[in-house]
Design a protein around this nucleic acid. Sequence first.
DNA 1: CAGTAATCCTGCCCGC
DNA 2: TGCGGGCAGGATTACT
Length: 270
Amino acid sequence: MPELPEVETVVRSLRPQLIGRTILVFEPIWPKVIEAVLLDDFTAAVEGQKIKDVTRRGKFILLHLDSVHLAVHLRMTGTLFITRKPVTDFQHITAVFHISAGEKLFFRDTRKFGRIYLYRDLEVLDRKLGIEPLGVGFTTEWLWENLRIRKRQMKALLLDQTFLAGLGNIYADEVLWRAKIHPLKLSNTVSSTKTKALHEAIGTILTDAIAANGTTIRDFTFQDEQTGGFNNELQVFQKEDSACPRCSTTIRKIRAVGRGTHICPRCQRQ
DNA sequence: CAGTAATCCTGCCCGC
DNA sequence: TGCGGGCAGGATTACT
Ligand SMILES: [Zn+2]
C-alpha cells in the first residue's frame, strides 16, 4: 500500500530518469486507468509533451509536462517504473508511456485501483488535499487547533486526505501507537501532551520511512524491483499476537473505521 | 457535520 | 488436489 514514504521513494527514483524526456506515445492497456477525462483528449494532451519535473503531493506522483500536469495515484498495488528489460506479462500493466531515448514508463497494478488524472490547473488538486505532514505549516499548534474544532475518530481523521495528505493504513497505525492514542478516540478530546506526541510521531516515522525507502507490504517496489527497508522498523502493523515493544502486552487486530487496525490495548486506551 | 456501507478489482486464504 | 466463497483495501458517493 503505497503511502507518503513509498510515493516519495518512487518520485526520487523517477525524477532523474524522467526530467527532460518527451512522451512520444501513450498506450492505454486498460483504458479505465484514465480518470475523468476522455481517452482521446488525454492522449492528445500528453503526447509530444516534455516532462519538466516530477514531484509529490500527498500520495500523488505529479508529472509536470509543458502545459499540463499528470497526477498518478498508485492506490493499493500500483507501481510506476522505467525498465529496459522486455516486459512480457501485460496482465497487470494498465498503461505504458513511450518516452524519448527508447525508454518506457510502465504502470503496473494488479488490483486496478490506481488511476492517472490530468490537470490543466494543479490548484484544483491542491485545494482538495489537506496539509502536507512534512511541510512547514504542519506544526503542533496547527494540529492542536484542528483536532479541537473537529469531533472525529482519530484514525478516520488521519486517513482523511482532505485533512492530512499522505498517511494510509500502515503509518496511521504506527503513529497512533507511538503517540499512545486509541484509533477511535475523538479528536476534540485528545490532550495537548498527546497532540504534541502525535505531531512528533508523524514527523519522525515518515522521515525515517523515507530514509529506509518505504515499506513493502505486498507489491511495493521501485527501481527494478527494489523493496522498502522500513518493514523491520514497524512496531504494530501486522504484529497482531506478538508483544508490544513498549509494554509487552499482546498486540491486537481490531476493526476500526472500516479497516484492519493494530493496537496495543494497554498503551492505547479509549 | 459525522459515520456507515457499497463500489471498484483480483489475488489469496479458508473450508470442504 | 481442486474449487468456490469471501475478504481486503483507498477514495468516492450515497444515505442515515
Ligand atoms: Zn503497549
